[in-house]
């Protein structure tokens, strides 16, 4: 659209024509129409896109009278905090939040770095079998987590990689049936993340790799010539110049860890993170006559409490995030 502006402004500048020519009218009308159409499209789509959020915010303070009152659509006439209090209790909010932070956010931060390291190996070095291994990266991105869920769960429940645990158990504890049970611990997420195969790691490695390939080589070569090793080069030269891609991946990773449900529900029975607690909130409300104003209001409040931390994080970071997306050029 910028180009159109320029085209119109150029003939206007000399002010040679006295009246407005037909051509200009046509151009201006067209411009105004496209602008109206664009804003109409964007505003209506924004409404649909934000609708769930509006609904959550609208339902949270609704009391019983509001739900029955047909004149109440968005704004509660008798707002109450009962729903919020009930949802807070149902989610066991502070405990759930701390678990989610401990499990999800720590895992996300680990993943952000380990994926970058693996991706750097793929982007900058040549070695035998690289293409095959990178195809495997894409495969890890494509295979849905559900298909791996049960074997992963069993592996963590009876941790025994290559019979090593039994060997150690037999040798040191005189107990051949010795097993390590990692379920209910954050290691279920930390360990895969530490090895760069955590939640959606394949996609992250792909994004990082595309970015690193597009990074100018000169800085790294200079660092090599100055005698820095590859690791030092990576940490001192590559990471500082990849802030934008790190930000993008961090936000994606945090959001997906926050919403992670399929694995958490298997790994955590008692000490479950917020997403699992949220999934059980409806049966909690309907079974045990907990004091809440309205079921819909209480569920909305629970959802709102669940997304609030991520939403606040996004509000603070969105400007940088959107700008960084502009510059990452995820597919170089």
């Amino acid at each position: 659209m910028e180009k159109e502006n320029k085209k119109i402004n150029i003939p206007e500048a000399p002010k040679r024509s006295i009246g407005i020519t037909k051509y200009q009218i046509k151009k201006n009308v067209k411009q105004v129409l496209t602008m109206i159409a664009r804003y109409a499209l964007l505003i209506s789509v924004s409404y649909i896109v934000l609708y769930p959020l509006f609904a959550l915010i609208a339902y949270t303070p609704m009391s019983r009278t509001d739900i029955l009152d047909p004149s109440v659509i968005w704004f509660s006439k008798h707002p109450t905090t009962g729903n919020l209090v009930a949802a807070w209790g149902a989610l066991d909010y502070l405990n759930g939040l701390s678990r989610t932070l401990l499990v999800g956010i720590v895992s996300a931060i680990i993943e952000v770095f380990t994926c970058a390291i693996a991706a750097y190996g793929f982007a900058r070095f040549e070695f035998k079998g690289k293409n095959l291994l990178f195809a495997l990266v894409l495969l890890t991105a494509i295979v849905p987590v559900q298909i791996l869920a049960i074997p992963l769960y069993l592996n963590f429940r009876y941790l025994d990689f290559f019979g090593l645990t039994k060997l150690i158990g037999g040798a040191f504890f005189d107990n051949p049936d010795f097993v390590i049970d990692l379920t209910e611990t954050p290691f279920t997420f930390w360990l895969p993340s530490l090895f760069g195969v955590g939640l959606r790691s394949g996609l992250f490695i792909f994004i990082y790799r595309q970015f690193f390939v597009g990074l100018p080589k000169e800085l790294e070569e200079a660092s090599w010539i100055d005698g820095a090793g590859p690791l030092k080069t990576f940490f001192k030269v590559v990471i500082p110049s990849s802030g934008v891609v790190f930000l993008t991946v961090t936000i994606f990773s945090i959001i997906w860890h926050w919403n992670e449900y399929h694995l958490s529900v298997l790994y955590f029975n008692n000490k479950h993170p917020l997403a699992v607690a949220l999934s059980g909130v409806v049966s909690y409300f309907t079974q045990s006559g907990i004091n809440y104003e309205t079921a819909q209001g209480a569920i909305s409040a629970a959802c709102l409490l669940f997304i609030a931390p991520v939403l606040i994080m996004y509000m603070f970071m969105q400007r940088k995030f959107i700008q960084s997306v502009d510059r990452v050029g995820i597919v170089g």
Binding site: R124, F127, L136, L148, F195, V197
Partner: peptide, 28 residues
Amino acid sequence: KKSMYGRMFILPWCIGMLLFFIIPLFQS
């Protein structure tokens, strides 16, 4: 030397992929 460094960078990922992806995939 560089190809060795490259392998070094992706070694952790290779181990992880074997343990947390290939083996579970075949198990399932």
